[in-house]
Design a protein around this nucleic acid. Structure first.
Length: 724
DNA sequence: GGCTCATTGCCTAGTTGGCT
DNA sequence: AGCCAACTAGGCAATGAGCC
């Protein structure tokens, strides 16, 4: 494919007029009210803290008579030139006001039109899919061009309440556990509790009142209800409010149990709940359709000229923003180089001094049992591993289903005399819906000195193909742990002798709250070879704290580091670490979730996903204490078959800070993204060290959850942690 | 030091479905 | 096993100053 041009789902923005800005100092408790009033009188605004001053300020493009008359605020004309960030927020506010004028409603991070005629019915009208729903952002490209990014989404909402559903769909109703109050985002988990059910007459009105205050909108419950549902709030904050306001509510696992009338409840519109009533519809939006939606919405809303008091913005919506060579770079690579990074075989050496056990175990689920296809699959996995590792591992297999009580017996039967013990846990996700069982097994085996590895058999269809891929992935994963990887991506000359570390964090549940634990994984040593070394950090109260302390620990051992963090911004790290750090060290953050645009190409007059992973769009750099942070949007994956375009690929955001040319760092990061020792069939979309630390964090999270209250005291041997 | 107001942005965590 | 797409929800920081 020869794409002649690249496009963003965005329109050019021209700021035609901006008068003096006004600033109001606002007491904290009135910020929300003030915003509400400003929306009422159509005044674009943003809340920001200007450097060098103290005080919460609402910055507006015009004086607000409501703020002055109703709340008695005094205005100040702002003399300083607004920052680009403030400017972009004001423009974004103006755009959002136009949407609100047209009856759109703000949701968590999107804005949508709750108009049934703009929605498609789902599952026999039980739910609606609102298709007029978008995410909006204003930002600058590196050339200085300003863009309004518009990304279409859907919003799914159930329309029928639980009393109806339990009558018409009694079987499905039993399966629903995640619910919310209709017309609000307040959600609950169903918990059966007789005491709470009995108390409904006394506490109904109090519960409705407390939720109204929490939500800021009126919630009322019918006095006579035929069906009472008992549930705990998902929100910890709401839980605590209810607990203090209504004493004597029954408790379940530290959460209050409430009686709620079924008439006001709907299932939360998750895919899981929708799927109970039939197969879920496809929600993916391919590029052409996505572009059409953006164009339709833009024309319906008349975004061309946004004329608000004190600000006039012109949106060039006649055509999508096509990016010029000033705003992107293409980093090419040779096919041979890619093949070498991707398509390798492990180089296991038989080391008689290290006896390695590979134990294959099927988990015993409580009630249901495994399908024939799953059982066949386990047999194939055993044979595959046995044949693939004749010298390296002693592969053992237990044919019986293993329960948690059997662990000690299993361990004593199989594990004598080995230096390294690996266990592959086979299970069916459908028999362990919430993963509790897997976590407990991982914990149990890790405590007994095994490195646990999990395979889900639920998608087995009885054919060989999937097992083949799974086996290949397991083998490659083990190869990494025992340093049997033939080559790592060679760094560019400027980065020789630098170690690469991926860092992520996860939550540790505590009795009344939680703390964070960080994971640093060194994957590339200074000489360019693989070094699989997992380090678990001390605990800290926030993820930034824990990540910063992990970075500090790593730098103490080796200041020449390329640190990759899973965040969308580097600001908090630069502030904590200081710019001195960047003399030797390179800080990079990467994220898949952001509100920036998709990257599209045009082919045969149609918008399509990019077919290559070499495009990097430059956003305007940001600065923090004089340190330049380069920002790039990059397409890191492709649809493997050109004609198959189910959805629109989401680009990845890179932030780079450091004293080496950022384009060169980017080139190395790109290589690390192609370097995929885990799957032979698919490339990860983020650099491998970060990908790996993310996976290890998830595993640690499962283990600590399974350990429950005593999670901090988990007695897992150090060497197992290090190779987790 | 924690909590409060409201809102946005960015994150985690979980789901289904299609793919190799 | 992994990847992607898509959806849902809540948590927390940011935004500050005052109150207990």
């Amino acid at each position: 494919m020869n794409a002649s041009k690249y496009y963003l789902l965005a329109y050019d923005v021209a700021l035609e007029n901006l008068s003096t800005l006004y600033v109001y100092k606002v007491p904290e408790e009135q910020v929300g009210l003030a915003r509400y009033l400003l929306n009422q009188e159509r005044v674009p605004h943003t809340i920001s803290k200007e450097p060098g001053t103290t005080g919460l300020k609402i910055c507006t493009t015009d004086r607000s008579s409501l703020l002055e008359s109703k709340l008695g605020y005094e205005y100040h004309a702002e003399e300083a030139k607004p920052s680009e960030k403030t400017l972009n927020r004001l423009i974004s506010s103006a755009v959002r006001l136009r949407f609100l004028e047209e009856g759109w409603v703000s949701s968590v991070s999107k804005i949508y039109k709750p108009d049934p005629s703009k929605a498609k019915p789902l599952i026999n009208n039980l739910a609606l899919r609102y298709e007029h729903s978008v995410r909006l952002t204003v930002d600058d490209l590196s050339s200085g061009r300003k863009a309004l990014f518009i990304d279409p989404t859907s919003k799914i909402e159930f329309t029928k309440t639980l009393d109806y559903i339990s009558k018409v769909y009694p079987e499905q109703a039993k399966e629903i556990s995640f619910i919310k109050i209709k017309g609000t985002p307040t959600s609950f988990y169903i918990v059966h509790n007789e005491e709470a059910r009995e108390s409904y007459k006394e506490v109904y009105s109090k519960v409705a009142e407390a939720i109204s205050v929490y939500q800021g909108l009126k919630v009322s419950f019918p006095k006579n209800t035929r069906e009472v549902v008992t549930a705990t709030p998902k929100s910890l904050r709401l839980n605590n409010i209810l607990r203090s306001k209504i004493p004597n509510l029954p408790l379940s696992e530290k959460r209050v149990v409430l009686p709620l009338p079924a008439e006001v409840l709907v299932p939360v519109g998750t895919l899981e709940n929708v799927s109970l009533f039939g197969s879920t519809p496809s929600l993916v939006i391919p590029p052409e359709e996505r572009v059409e939606k953006v164009k339709n919405i833009a024309s319906e809303l008349d975004l061309e000229r946004l004329d608000f008091s004190g600000i006039r913005v012109k949106i060039g919506r006649e055509k999508l923003l096509s990016i010029t060579s000033r705003d992107f770079i293409e980093i090419s690579y040779s096919n041979e180089e890619l093949k070498k990074l991707w398509d390798w075989e492990p180089t296991f050496k038989n080391d008689p001094s290290r006896r390695r056990l590979l134990l294959i175990v099927k988990l015993k689920a409580d009630i249901k049992t495994y399908s024939d296809k799953c059982l066949q699959a386990t047999q194939k996995i055993y044979e595959g591993l046995k044949n693939r590792f004749p010298e390296v591992f002693n592969v053992q297999y237990t044919d019986v289903l293993v329960s948690l009580e059997d662990l000690d017996a299993i361990v004593s039967t199989y594990s004598g005399g080995y230096d390294e013990k690996y266990v592959v846990l086979l299970y069916d996700r459908d028999l362990d819906k919430h993963g509790n069982l897997v976590g407990r097994f991982e914990l149990g085996f890790a405590q007994r000195g095994f490195y646990p590895h999990v395979i889900d058999l639920s998608t087995e269809d009885g054919y060989d193909s999937k097992i083949k891929f799974k086996l290949m992935n397991i083998i490659r994963d083990f190869a990494v742990r025992v340093n049997a990887v033939p080559s790592a991506p060679s760094p560019p000359p400027q980065l020789r002798g630098i170690s690469v570390v991926g860092i992520d964090s996860t939550i540790v549940p505590l009795k009344r709250s939680h703390v964070y634990v960080g994971v640093a994984i060194t994957l590339i040593k200074p000489d360019g070879s693989i070094d699989y070394d997992v380090k678990i950090s001390r605990l800290a109260e926030s993820d930034v704290d824990v990540l910063t302390s992990v970075i500090r620990d790593e730098l103490r051992q080796n200041p020449r580091l390329l640190v990759i963090v899973n965040k969308s911004s580097l600001d908090s790290f630069l502030e904590n670490l200081g710019s001195e750090t960047l003399k030797d060290c390179i800080l990079v953050s990467v994220t898949k979730t952001h509100s920036y645009s998709r990257l599209l190409a045009k082919y045969n007059d149609k918008f399509v996903n990019l077919s290559k992973t070499n495009l990097f769009v430059r956003l305007a750099p940001s600065y923090n204490g004089g340190v330049q942070i380069s920002r790039y949007l990059a397409n890191t994956t492709t649809y493997s078959r050109g004609s198959y375009e189910a959805g629109t690929i989401r680009p990845v955001l890179f932030n780079i800070a450091g004293s080496i040319d950022h384009d060169i760092i980017l080139q190395y990061l790109q290589k690390l993204t192609y370097y995929a020792p885990i799957s032979k069939s698919w490339l990860p979309s983020i650099p491998w060290p970060l990908h790996k630390s993310d996976k290890i964090c998830k595993k640690i999270n499962r283990i600590l959850k399974a350990a429950g209250e005593s999670s901090i005291l988990v007695d897992i041997p150090q060497d197992v942690w290090r190779k987790l």
